[in-house]
């Protein structure tokens, strides 16, 4: 059995779950495993229909009073109990904050290995050999996993979700969990909902500035250009480290991964930890004084020269054409 842990928030399935379902279906077919899913909390019982479309044959629905909201320890313990009862060959989730956290919690409880952010199963020969990402995606690692049940997450955004050719029955089976009352300690105790609007992660245009911008005030022309294009401003870590912009603007390995139609990188050298957060952009325009800068070399387009002159000129040209 290959068991996919379904990530959901108070009953709403996360888009990321589609990735592990799609990946899991391929792996299950290649290795002769049946595809099952685990949903945690009664609020997720209604997800069975979507899971059928992904080819899931059985949905184990974990129920307990303490599972009405997310808690890493309660969810990890639930998954550990499911592994003990069902003995799956593989447990799979998507490598999101929650996916990685719950699998790590379960692995700790079961004292088994856990492989985060896999891309591909390379071979199965007693141990499983997989390709996984290191350095937030800048480097690959072939890695072997030796355990009765293999706990794996598939790297987020590495797989495109697609439905199964033949839907599964998604037969619902209740799964009763026993949780110690103490595990309530790490259940979400409150929430501040996010205000609607364009975010760095979803913006169609991102205009970013790096150390070359020079000061917090000098971001004003970048703000203006981003505003004209319906986009947002981003930045490099050199900028957040200097306290010029908040960390929520940072693009990269330890910042936000972006995927805009166009990324305009001004005064950013293109260190690999920055690049890995920007490389999913459809097109990249680098504005830099240094024609050898990694950002310039890797970009689709570049303008060479001083960003303080070039950015306002682009803004003026857009305004001129719009009349």
């Amino acid at each position: 059995m290959l068991l996919v842990l379904i990530e959901h928030d108070r009953g709403t399935m996360s888009a990321a779950s589609g990735e592990s379902l799609t990946f899991g279906r391929t792996v299950a077919a290649a290795h002769g495993l049946v595809l099952h899913a685990l949903t945690i909390g009664a609020a997720a019982d209604g997800l069975a229909a979507s899971l059928a479309a992904h080819g899931v044959s059985t949905v184990h629905q974990a129920h307990h009073d303490m599972l009405s909201d997310y808690g890493p320890e309660a969810w990890g313990e639930t998954l550990a109990q499911a592994v003990r009862t069902l003995s799956p060959t593989v447990v799979l989730a998507t490598g999101t904050d929650r996916g990685n956290e719950v699998l790590a919690q379960a692995a700790a409880r079961l004292d088994v290995p856990f492989m985060a952010n896999a891309l591909e199963v390379l071979g199965v020969n007693g141990s499983w050999e997989l390709m996984r990402v290191r350095w937030g995606g800048s480097l690959l690692e072939k890695s072997s996993l030796t355990a009765g049940t293999k706990l794996i997450t598939v790297a987020h955004h590495a797989v495109n979700e697609s439905p199964a050719d033949v839907p599964g029955a998604a037969t619902a089976t209740p799964f009763n969990v026993e949780l110690e009352a103490s595990l309530a300690r790490s259940i979400v105790s409150g929430r501040v909902e996010r205000a609607a609007g364009v975010t760095l992660a979803t913006a169609p245009v991102v205009v970013s500035g790096g150390r070359g911008v020079g000061s917090p005030e000098a971001f004003a022309p970048l703000e203006e250009l981003a505003g004209l294009l319906g986009g947002v401003v981003g930045c490099s870590r050199a900028v957040t480290n200097n306290g010029w912009r908040p960390h929520t603007d940072q693009v990269g390995q330890t910042g936000t991964r972006i995927a805009p139609e166009i990324y305009i990188a001004c005064g950013i050298s293109g260190a690999i930890q920055h690049w890995v957060g920007a490389m999913a952009s459809k097109k990249i325009l680098a504005i830099n004084t240094d024609k050898e800068a990694n950002m310039v070399v890797k970009a689709d387009y570049a303008v060479l020269g001083d960003l303080h002159k070039i950015v306002p000129a682009i803004t003026a040209e857009i305004q001129r054409r719009r009349g």
């Binding site: 970009a299 387009y301 303008v303 060479l304 020269g305 070039i310 306002p312 000129a313």
Partner: peptide, 13 residues
């Protein structure tokens, strides 16, 4: 990738 250089300085706008 082959970078297309759109120009140098503000004249590239």
């Amino acid at each position: 990738s082959k970078t297309v250089i759109l120009g140098t300085g503000p004249e590239a706008a």
